[in-house]
Structure formats: C-alpha cells, structure tokens
C-alpha cells in the first residue's frame, strides 16, 4: 500500500480506538505503530509522548505528526495528523447534528443536566491527576494559586497566564529556586 495512505489509515484507526486521548492512547499506539507497523520503537514513542506533553497542542496530534514526519517528511506528518482527527470529525459532526435536533425535548434536557453533574466530578478527578504531575514544590503551588485566583476573578485571557507562567518558571529555576 502507498505509505501516505497507510499513515492516514493507521492513525484514523488509532483515533477511532482512543477514548479520551493523551495517555489512553499509548497502548494502542504501541500495538499499531510499534508492533504491527514497526514505524517507531517503544523508546521513540516514549520520547514523542514526553515532548508532546511539553509542547503546545493536543498530545495525540503531536505524536501523530512526529511519526508521520519520521516516515515521510512533512507531507507524512500532515497526513498522519489528518488521519488522527478524521474519525472525530465524522463522529462528532453526526452526533452534534442529532443532539441539536433533539435538544428541545424535555427528557434530553434532564439527561444533560444529570450529565453535567458527572462532568463536574470528571473535571475534579482530572485536576487531581494533573496536580500530581505538575506541582512538585511550594513555587508550583504558588503559581497554581495565583493563576486559579486570577482566572476566577479577572477577565484576563488564558494566553496571559501561559506566557507569565512560562516566564516565572524560567526565572524561578534559573535563580536557583524550585525543585529541578
């Protein structure tokens, strides 16, 4: 098979089989990309994940771009990424259309009111998990508290916080503060 097509289809398959993205995707990538296709080693995959976590954007997309680029250069990176997002586009568009058509029904509104309660708890759990990998010392706690307070009580854009926090990280660590 043409490798460009293969990249698109393989990552489309990974996209269909991943719920939630991020770490949930690692075992599926290992099976499809490392074991079945031999496009990368386990070590490379771990590297891509680590970099995906510390570069902007969606980790799943970053990893797809990396592997596609390694196989077939820039067009390969783009095709792997398009493959990865293709199932989401199709599935969500269909669902969104259906939900829009039924959203005036009373029981659908009750269902979503129940679902929103569940979403609160899921976000809370996600924050606890993020906290463990993000906050390692007092300075981390200070940055967390400052950004949380400012987000809740000022209309500043998240972009301001991202830039300020990156700058604060560089200053704290290079002036000798914080755990390395």
């Amino acid at each position: 098979m043409n490798e460009y097509l293969d990249l698109f289809l393989t990552f489309a398959k990974v996209g269909v089989m991943t719920f939630g993205g991020g770490m949930a995707m690692l075992p599926i990538l290992q099976r499809e990309v490392v074991e079945s296709k031999g496009w990368a080693t386990d070590e490379e995959l771990t590297d891509y994940f680590a970099i995906g976590q510390c570069t902007p954007g969606i980790i799943a997309v970053n990893t797809a771009t990396f592997i596609g680029q390694k196989r077939r250069g820039i067009p390969g990176g783009i095709l792997a990424t398009l493959g990865m997002v293709f199932p989401s586009l199709v599935i969500i568009t269909i669902l969104a259309g259906l939900i829009t058509n039924f959203s005036h029904l009373e029981w659908v509104q009750h269902a979503f009111a129940g679902i929103r309660v569940c979403v609160c708890v899921l976000i809370f759990n996600a924050v606890l998990k993020l906290w463990k990998s993000a906050v390692h010392d007092v300075w981390g706690g200070v940055i967390f508290a400052a950004v949380l307070g400012l987000t809740l009580f000022t209309p500043l854009s998240p972009i301001v916080f991202v830039l300020a926090a990156a700058l604060a990280g560089v200053l704290i660590q290079n002036l000798g503060g914080g755990r390395k």
Binding site: C54, V127, L130, W131, S133, A134, V135, G140, G141, I143, F144, A145, A146, V147, L148, T151, F161, V162, A164, A165, A166, L167, A168, G169, V170, I172, Q173, G178
Partner: peptide, 9 residues
C-alpha cells in the same frame, strides 16, 4: 516547570 501548574489551575 512554570507552565504545568498554570495549566492545572
């Protein structure tokens, strides 16, 4: 090191 706590917040 600075970005991760901010993103969590």
């Amino acid at each position: 090191y600075g970005l991760r706590p901010a993103s969590t917040a």
